[in-house]
């Protein structure tokens, strides 16, 4: 059974006559790393949002199965408990919510749902130190409010840190690489690679090919106009980098004609 199976997914914006996804099909197995690329506005982030359960989107048609279960039936927090994780494109600043308290509550609610014991404070702090070290995250950040005053790179690194703490089975990275300098990009990629242990699946949404030089995908999908226009191996990413997206659009149009 596939970890994630998306069938003919059509999505619009609630209360507005806008359609963003027009029949997406995608299958991801445990252990796989898939990249979704595509121009701005093609629907990449919408797909990530729908997978995480953002409520302003309305599924008009199609279904999503996660580990055989109907994902769309689950609340966002239930998806997290079941092992779905979204690394946000724009991580939210939460002044007054301490990183440590937030993460502890988050980790323990997910552990509880998975039938694991709550971590003691000592265990939690140790795990937090280890994972922060692993990602090269400044441990002082864990003493601050969630994302408050973090630089762009720190915010993205913090998303991967949370990924490491929550140990999801399906991780969706929504443009985690955009806006990063080369050092931050490498440390984010290193973090992802360390977590790539065969027990989870990754869906990496990106605008650029460069992160895929560090995180080598098993499959590359190109999304255009709310559909997967083409899929291929990592060579496809290289072709997109060299030739842009228009040739795919032309080919798709030619095939349809």
């Amino acid at each position: 059974m596939a970890l994630l199976e998306i069938n003919n997914l059509h999505v619009g914006v609630e209360d507005e006559d806008i359609k963003i996804l027009n029949g997406v099909d995608l299958t991801l197995d445990t252990g796989d790393m898939h990249a979704i690329m595509g121009p701005n506005g093609s629907g990449k982030s919408t797909l990530a949002s729908v997978l995480a359960g953002r409520e302003e989107y309305e599924v008009l048609e199609g279904d999503i199965h996660y580990d055989g279960e109907d994902l769309l039936e689950l609340e966002p927090e239930e998806r997290a408990e079941e092992g779905v994780f979204l690394a946000f494109q724009y991580p939210v600043e939460l002044p007054g919510v301490s990183m440590t308290n937030f993460l502890k509550e988050s980790v323990n609610s997910v552990r509880e749902a998975r039938g694991q014991e709550e971590l003691s404070s000592a265990e939690f702090l140790q795990q937090m130190r280890e994972r922060a070290d692993m990602l090269g995250l400044d441990a002082d950040l864990t003493k601050r409010s969630v994302n408050e005053g973090f630089s762009g790179g720190e915010k993205k690194r913090n998303e991967i840190f949370q990924l490491a703490m929550l140990e999801p089975r399906l991780a969706i990275l929504d443009e985690t690489d955009s806006g990063l300098d080369i050092d931050a990009l490498q440390s984010v990629a290193n973090g992802v690679n360390k977590l790539r242990d065969g027990d989870r699946g990754f869906l990496v949404i990106t605008h650029y090919e460069r992160i895929l030089q560090y995180i080598v995908p098993d499959r590359v999908h190109v999304m255009m106009d709310g559909q997967i226009a083409r899929s291929g191996d990592k060579e496809l990413a290289q072709q997109l980098e060299e030739h842009g997206y228009e040739w795919i659009r032309d080919e798709v149009a030619a095939a349809a004609a």
């Binding site: 953002r54 609340e75 408990e81 939210v92 002044p95 007054g96």
Partner: peptide
């Protein structure tokens, strides 16, 4: 801030808990 609530929920906190935490954070200052 509903975006904050969604962020917390996507990390496993219930909607109720997320709202309480957001309000507590607001008053914490």
């Amino acid at each position: 801030d509903e975006e904050g609530v969604f962020y917390l929920r996507s990390r496993g906190l219930s909607e109720r808990r997320a709202h309480i935490l957001m309000l507590q954070a607001f008053t914490d200052e």
